[in-house]
Nucleic acid binder design. Structure first.
Length: 562
RNA sequence: UGGGGCAUCGUAUAACGGCAGUACAGCGGACUCUGGAUCCGCUAGUCUAGGUUCGAAUCCUAGUGCCCCAGCCA
């Protein structure tokens, strides 16, 4: 199922795969290897799209493999969340779900083999000693005296390690490579350490656990992974990846590295995201401000928009920071085509139509989505008293203000043209709290039979029928493009204190009183919103703002977001 | 002279010895019952210095800048 035509340019990994396909490899087998110690974020989505995407495009397969080699950090709840997220993105692993722990026995056999060949040894150095012996970036390390142990002694000790005869930290198994290598990973890397904790899948059957470098490549090989795609920081692990496979003489998977995703105005590492959650800066991994898949989902992002974003950013080896506006562009583009429109007044200001009959009411036709007429129409109620947006009225408007002001005309969307004939103030605050308008009955539906041009159109909600809803306006979580670039400051110092604004008195057209879960809307002139089924109550529906509409007026005024 | 990697508009990303293109952002205009969307246009780039070549973002040499590595994390 290759894409036809060379019109679309190909990233270097797909080009490499295409080349390998011509020289022997039958089909690409990739894998997505999360460690179940945190939630997936948009950076993982890049990897998911790459690995599963390649499998789809080239008629291969992609395995889901949990890298569960460290029981002191991992948990099943993360595993379940990860599976949910991948499924939600729209990818399937079918029966191809694996665990590094599936291979513990095989890995152990492999280790025995290396020991028997004098290529690995049991070391009794302490963690600190190992660090000291490793040397520094510019000085070679020195060899542990354990290197001299006999094969028999190593075998005996390693078997005893497995049996749990030693304490944590007492011994490790190391590969015997080269303590003078310029590549730190080759300075006799640790293969196994003793961890006396139960594992979620193997329970207490092991007291030694393989390190990443030892587990990963061999797992790839066992599964017949043709292309093992990982991020740049593993580039200098590749010689070790290759060394193990070559010493063992097993199937040679190939590791290829690409640049991880960085997004402006956010942080994208599990460690930092974990900190935001643990220290209560956000309301959990799925807080709509989080760049996690579950957070984006709750924020109103669609799988399609995320996949489109991943396609747009491409795959390269260049460290880069993607502007978060590109992500916002992807969701706007998607939702513009699909989101049902609704009228919701976020900051209500009462409007009375002075010449509209007392007690009168009518239903007006509104288009559900001007971009997709097949989505039909709906009736919205109209009567003498309405709510409009506070900032759609100005007593002393600046130039080019097309909305309502004393004496001016504006169109009430899908309703009538109205003219402002007066307003009232709150006697205490002096704030305008009601506007009076006259409507033109000839302009029903918002048309102007006389051909007159009315520049401004504003949204409104019938006061009598309005659903009272809560709306949460989200803004970027950080105030600076790269919160982790300042090495002297903790990234949490750059948290945006206004990243969440909750409006509890919004007036929505009646239909929104009972929205289905996870329904995307466009609140006309305001932005895209999604019904939040976690925090909504029957008497108080909650909507999260996914992203605002582009707003050339506020940019004109020099503001950023409303 | 520790090892590894990367340098193209503001941000990303193409061009694989032959017109430096695309997207986002920005700016201007058209259109509009969403100051949305759409459409049109503009601005703006090959890290530096040499070299090879009819021709270099691309090949060579030398430099410069940035990123990663000293977990019994992944």
């Amino acid at each position: 199922m290759e894409k036809d035509g060379p019109s679309e340019s190909e990233d270097f990994i797909r080009a490499r795969i295409r080349k390998d396909l011509k020289s022997g490899i039958k089909e690409p087998i990739t894998r997505f290897p999360p460690e179940p110690n945190g939630y997936l974020h948009i950076g993982h989505a890049k990897s998911v799209c790459l690995n599963f995407g390649i499998a789809e495009e080239f008629g291969g397969t992609c395995n889901l493999r949990f890298d569960d080699t460290n029981p002191s950090k991992e948990d099943v709840r993360y595993e379940n969340a990860i599976k949910d997220d991948i499924r939600w993105l729209g990818f399937q692993w079918k029966d191809r779900i694996y665990y590094a722990s599936d291979y513990f026995e095989q890995l152990y056999e492999y280790a025995l083999k290396l020991i028997a060949e004098g290529k690995a040894y049991v070391d009794d150095l302490s963690a600190e000693e190992i660090r000291e012996y490793r040397g520094t970036l510019s000085e070679p390390g020195k060899e542990s005296s354990s290197r001299q142990k006999s094969i028999e002694e190593n075998l005996r000790l390693f078997q005893a390690m497995r049996k749990g005869e030693f304490e944590e930290g007492q011994y490790v198994l190391r590969a015997k490579i080269d303590m003078t290598s310029g590549n730190m990973n080759m300075r006799d890397p640790v293969m196994y350490r003793i961890i006396k904790k139960p594992h979620t899948r193997t329970a207490d059957s092991w007291s030694i656990y393989p390190m990443y470098d030892w587990a990963h490549g061999q797992s790839d090989s066992i599964e017949g992974i043709t292309h093992s795609l990982c991020t740049l920081e593993f580039e200098d692990h590749r010689p070790l990846y290759d060394w193990f496979i070559e010493q063992l003489g097993i199937y040679h998977s190939r590791q290829i590295e690409f640049a991880r995703l960085n997004l402006s105005y956010t942080v994208l590492s599990k460690r930092n995201l974990m900190k935001l959650v643990r220290e209560g800066f956000v309301d959990g991994w799925d807080d709509p401000r989080m760049p996690t898949i579950s957070g984006l989902r709750r924020r109103g992002y669609t799988p399609e928009s995320i996949k489109d974003f991943c396609r747009k950013i491409g795959i390269t080896k260049q460290d880069s920071v993607i502007d978060v506006e590109l992500l916002e562009h992807s969701i706007r583009e998607d939702l513009n085509k699909r989101a049902q429109r609704a009228m919701v007044v976020l900051n209500p200001l009462k409007m009375t139509i002075v010449n509209y009959p007392e007690g009168g009411e009518e239903g007006l036709d509104a288009v559900n989505n001007p971009e997709d007429l097949s989505m039909g129409k709906r009736k919205v109620p109209f009567s003498k008293e309405l709510f409009i947006e506070k900032d759609d009225f100005m007593e002393n408007p600046p130039k080019k203000f097309y909305r309502l002001s004393p004496g001016s005309e504006v169109r009430l969307r899908y309703a009538y043209i109205v003219r402002c004939v007066g307003f009232e103030r709150d006697p205490v605050t002096g704030e305008v709290n009601e506007v009076h308008c006259e409507y033109d009955p000839e302009t029903k539906g918002g048309n102007t039979p006389d051909g007159r041009k009315v520049r401004g159109t504003i949204h409104w909600v019938c006061a009598k029928n309005a659903s009272r809803v809560t709306v949460r306006l989200y803004d970027r979580l950080f105030t600076v493009p790269n919160p982790v670039s300042d090495k002297k400051k903790e990234f949490t110092e750059f948290l945006n204190t206004d990243s969440l604004q909750t409006l509890t008195d919004c007036a929505a057209e009646p239909a929104l009183g009972n929205s289905p879960a996870e329904t995307n809307y466009q609140f006309e002139r305001k932005g895209y919103f999604i019904f939040d089924s976690v925090d909504s109550k029957p008497e108080e529906p909650v909507f999260n703002r996914t992203v605002s509409l582009r707003d050339s007026w506020s940019r004109h005024l020099g503001g950023k977001t409303a």
